[in-house]
Protein backbone atom coordinates (compact mmCIF):
# COMPACT_ATOMS: atom_id res chain seq x y z
CA UNK A 1 0.00 0.00 0.00
CA UNK A 2 1.67 3.19 -1.16
CA UNK A 3 -1.26 5.60 -1.08
CA UNK A 4 -1.37 8.06 1.81
CA UNK A 5 -4.68 7.19 3.46
CA UNK A 6 -4.51 10.07 5.91
CA UNK A 7 -5.59 12.25 3.00
CA UNK A 8 -8.81 10.29 2.60
CA UNK A 9 -12.04 12.11 3.35
CA UNK A 10 -13.22 9.31 5.64
CA UNK A 11 -10.08 9.30 7.77
CA UNK A 12 -9.99 11.98 10.49
CA UNK A 13 -6.74 13.26 11.97
CA UNK A 14 -5.15 10.84 14.45
CA UNK A 15 -2.52 12.07 16.91
CA UNK A 16 -0.83 10.46 19.89
CA UNK A 17 -1.72 12.02 23.24
CA UNK A 18 1.02 12.87 25.74
CA UNK A 19 1.01 11.11 29.11
CA UNK A 20 0.03 14.22 31.07
CA UNK A 21 -2.88 14.92 28.74
CA UNK A 22 -3.90 11.28 28.98
CA UNK A 23 -4.21 11.58 32.77
CA UNK A 24 -6.21 14.76 32.35
CA UNK A 25 -8.69 13.08 29.97
CA UNK A 26 -9.14 10.11 32.28
CA UNK A 27 -9.67 12.37 35.28
CA UNK A 28 -12.23 14.48 33.42
CA UNK A 29 -14.34 11.40 32.65
CA UNK A 30 -13.55 9.57 35.91
CA UNK A 31 -12.28 6.44 34.14
CA UNK A 32 -9.01 4.61 33.61
CA UNK A 33 -7.56 4.69 30.12
CA UNK A 34 -8.48 1.08 29.31
CA UNK A 35 -12.17 1.98 29.56
CA UNK A 36 -11.90 4.22 26.50
CA UNK A 37 -13.07 2.93 23.12
CA UNK A 38 -10.39 0.79 21.49
CA UNK A 39 -8.27 0.96 18.39
CA UNK A 40 -5.99 -1.84 17.24
CA UNK A 41 -2.25 -1.22 17.03
CA UNK A 42 -2.34 -2.48 13.44
CA UNK A 43 -5.06 -0.05 12.39
CA UNK A 44 -4.05 1.51 9.05
CA UNK A 45 -4.82 5.02 10.27
CA UNK A 46 -2.19 4.86 13.07
CA UNK A 47 0.38 2.58 11.46
CA UNK A 48 2.74 5.52 10.87
CA UNK A 49 2.45 6.98 14.37
CA UNK A 50 4.58 4.28 15.96
CA UNK A 51 2.36 3.70 18.98
CA UNK A 52 2.30 0.86 21.49
CA UNK A 53 -0.52 -0.75 23.43
CA UNK A 54 -1.81 1.51 26.19
CA UNK A 55 -1.23 4.77 24.34
CA UNK A 56 -4.20 7.07 23.82
CA UNK A 57 -5.00 8.41 20.36
CA UNK A 58 -6.78 11.70 19.86
CA UNK A 59 -9.10 11.74 16.87
CA UNK A 60 -10.44 14.99 15.48
CA UNK A 61 -13.69 13.93 13.92
CA UNK A 62 -15.69 16.04 11.56
CA UNK A 63 -19.25 15.96 12.76
CA UNK A 64 -22.39 17.10 10.99
CA UNK A 65 -23.83 18.42 14.24
CA UNK A 66 -20.89 19.79 16.22
CA UNK A 67 -18.32 20.79 13.61
CA UNK A 68 -15.13 19.28 14.98
CA UNK A 69 -15.14 16.87 17.92
CA UNK A 70 -12.22 15.38 19.82
CA UNK A 71 -12.60 11.69 20.42
CA UNK A 72 -10.21 9.37 22.21
CA UNK A 73 -9.33 5.74 21.68
CA UNK A 74 -6.87 3.56 23.54
CA UNK A 75 -4.45 1.39 21.56
CA UNK A 76 -4.73 -2.35 22.14
CA UNK A 77 -2.85 -5.37 20.80
CA UNK A 78 -4.55 -7.70 18.37
Amino acid sequence: MTADISKHALVPKHTKVSDSEKDKICAAHNINSMQLPKIFKEDPAISKLGVKAGDVIKIERHSKTAGVVSFYRVVIDE
Binding site: M1, I5, H8, L10, V11, P12, H14, I39, F40, D43, P44, A45, I46, I59, R61, R73
Partner: peptide, 17 residues
Protein backbone atom coordinates in the same frame (compact mmCIF):
# COMPACT_ATOMS: atom_id res chain seq x y z
CA UNK B 1 -13.09 -3.28 3.03
CA UNK B 2 -13.07 0.30 4.34
CA UNK B 3 -12.05 -1.10 7.74
CA UNK B 4 -9.18 -3.07 6.28
CA UNK B 5 -7.84 -0.24 4.13
CA UNK B 6 -8.70 2.93 6.06
CA UNK B 7 -9.18 1.87 9.66
CA UNK B 8 -11.83 1.90 12.34
CA UNK B 9 -12.55 5.63 12.41
CA UNK B 10 -13.12 5.67 8.66
CA UNK B 11 -15.58 2.81 9.08
CA UNK B 12 -17.57 4.76 11.63
CA UNK B 13 -17.89 7.63 9.19
CA UNK B 14 -18.63 5.25 6.31
CA UNK B 15 -21.48 3.63 8.27
CA UNK B 16 -23.00 7.04 9.00
CA UNK B 17 -22.64 8.16 5.38
Amino acid sequence: EVYKVLGVEAVRQAIIN
